[in-house]
Every structure is written in C-alpha cells, then in structure tokens.
C-alpha cells in the first residue's frame, strides 16, 4: 500500500483523491479506537509534536491535542498571546527555537495566508496546517467530508451548499476543494458582500436565495459569521442577516425532504442557525467534532509514518 503522496498537509490543494481515501480509511479505524474502553494506541511513542497557535482556537487545538495524545505522541503547546512573538521574534526564529528541542511535527494555525507553505520551505519538520488566515483549513474539510460520507454513504453526485460568510472562511475554500475532488456539486449561498468575487472560477455556483439553495441541496454546511475578521460592515444588521440567511425550523419544514445540517463551530445560536435546528437529529454537528479527532489521528499517523527511524 502506498502512503500519503505529500510530505506535509498544507492544504487540500496539495493532496489528491487517493490521499483523501487513505485518510478516510485510516480515520474509520481510529474512530473505532477512540470508542474503546481504553482509547489509546502506542504508535507515536517516540514522536514529538508542537502545536503552534498564532491565532486563537479552542476546538481545533483541543481536537489536535487529543488526537496526538491518543496516538501516544509527546505534545507541546504554544500560543502567540503568551509568547515572544509579542516581543518581535520572527516566525522562522520562533519555530527554529522550538525545533531545536527535537520536534518532529508542527501543527500550526496562523493569521497569514500561506504561513504553512512558507514554513515548509525553511524547516525540516512535517507541517500540518490548522488554518492559515482566510485560506485553507484542510483537517476541517476532511472531517466535514468524512462526516457527510458517513451519513449519506458517499459524496459522489451529492449537492452541497455552503452558507454564510464565504469571504472570510478558510473552511469554505478547503471544503470546496475537497468536495469537488470527491465528486460533489458545490454551491455557495450568502450575502453578495460576503461572497468572493471570483469564486465562480472554482466551478462553484453562487445562489443568493437561501430557500432555493436549501431546495437544491442534500447537505447544508452553515458557516459562522466571523465578526472578528470584518473590518467594515458587510450587511446592514445581524437581524437582517438572520432573516435572509439564518437557518430555522420553518425554512427546513417547507422543504418536504430532510437535508443534513453541518456547522464547523463555534455556533452563534440564533444568528446563522437556531437552537432547534442545531440540536435536531438532522444536524451532525457533534458527529463532526468526534470525527475531527479520528481524522486528525489519521493525518498525524500517516505523516509520522514517513519519518523513518534510520
């Protein structure tokens, strides 16, 4: 069996369909592992992983840390708001200092687009991109696709709409790449101001009417409105956004079919999705969280396998 074709996981763009299938297959075994009474395997006993978070994160960092610990790796955590970055140290210096402590894999979240790619050209460790600015968030896309496959059996030919703040979303871009690679039809839906100008060049259709988008889709991936990334006003008011693009039970009841609802979290309850929808059985939001650990275990395991001992 061939391993991963890529030396790092920088984005979905850098891997291929076989890689995704290998990651899914491995993740399904890890999902069984994390449901055992003892949820740990010893594979990565002699591997050290640094989680470098230059941008705030709770769930992604916890998910990575748990995945690493389930694989028995040694883990060190670093977050920018309590570090020398504030004292003016460059990215390469910060990372090289950490690597001098013999770290094998770096999981990095960074506010700048392409930070992972840049780092991979300058350091020897394996890099996993845990989100770079508004660019990519590959493990989120993988766990989303894995969750859809688990729920619907396959992704080929399925209609998937990504709703909300596409402009600021790295989840949207990675999702578009991975879902298209696996044969899904992808549309985006949201206020025109939050849809990137050239998104059609990716083969994605834009739908401005939420009801039409819901009518068309099998799966709706609802994104969070990222207020913290908005330097100007992109829509008149949160209330108006909710009325036009928020998912509620009434809108879903009108569909005459049951669609799958996803959300990468954290949820702004009552803004992009109401509580009754988020907690309904057609929402697979908590499955996504569970699958996140399994997918991250698979990615780390498959990359670690390339670090030979001799």
């Amino acid at each position: 069996m061939a391993g991963l074709s890529s030396q790092h996981l920088l984005g979905i763009k850098q891997i291929n369909k076989q890689d995704i299938e290998l990651i899914f297959n491995t993740a399904s075994h890890f999902k069984e592992v994390i449901n055992r009474p003892i949820k740990k395997v010893p594979s990565l006993r002699d591997i050290t992983i640094a989680n470098l978070f230059f941008e705030n994160s709770t769930r992604t960092r916890l998910s990575f840390e748990l995945a690493e610990k389930r694989l028995s790796a040694d883990v060190i955590n670093f977050s920018a708001n309590q570090s020398s970055v504030k004292k003016g140290e460059t990215l390469i210096d910060t990372v090289n200092n950490i690597l001098a402590m013999k770290v094998d894999i770096v999981v990095m979240r960074h506010p700048d687009v392409g930070a992972g790619v840049f780092l991979s050209k300058h350091i020897k460790a394996k890099i996993i991109n845990a989100g770079d600015g508004t660019h990519e968030h590959p493990t989120q896309a993988l766990l989303d696709a894995f969750s859809i496959k688990e729920k619907l059996g396959s992704i080929q030919g399925k209609n998937i709409v990504i709703i909300g703040d596409i402009l600021h979303s790295r989840v949207a871009l990675s999702n578009i790449f991975s879902l298209q690679m696996l044969g899904a039809n992808v549309k985006v839906c949201g206020p025109l101001t939050l849809i990137p100008k050239h998104i059609k060049s990716l083969g994605v259709e834009v739908e401005l009417n939420l009801e039409k988008a819901l009518q068309w889709c099998d799966v709706a991936n609802v994104l969070r409105v990222q207020h913290e990334r908005m330097d100007i006003k992109y829509f008149p008011s949160v209330r108006e956004y909710t009325q036009l693009f928020g998912i509620n039970k009434q809108k879903l009841d009108r569909l005459k079919k049951e669609i799958v609802i996803m959300h990468p979290g954290p949820i702004n309850r009552g803004v992009e999705i109401t509580s009754d929808v988020a907690d309904s059985k057609q929402a697979i939001i908590l499955d996504q969280v569970e699958n996140g650990v399994a997918i991250r275990m698979a990615v780390i395991y498959l990359l670690a396998e390339q670090i030979k001992t001799t």
Binding site: G3, H29, V33, P42, E305
Partner: peptide
Amino acid sequence: TFFRDDFRRRGESLEANKT
C-alpha cells in the same frame, strides 16, 4: 496495525483492518 513495533521502520505502509 497500530500496536506493531515496526512502525516507521517498514519500507512500505500497512493498511489497518477492522477490529
């Protein structure tokens, strides 16, 4: 598979099976 002592020592990777 995940308990083998030759992880990172094998030439080619091994696919896991169902438990």
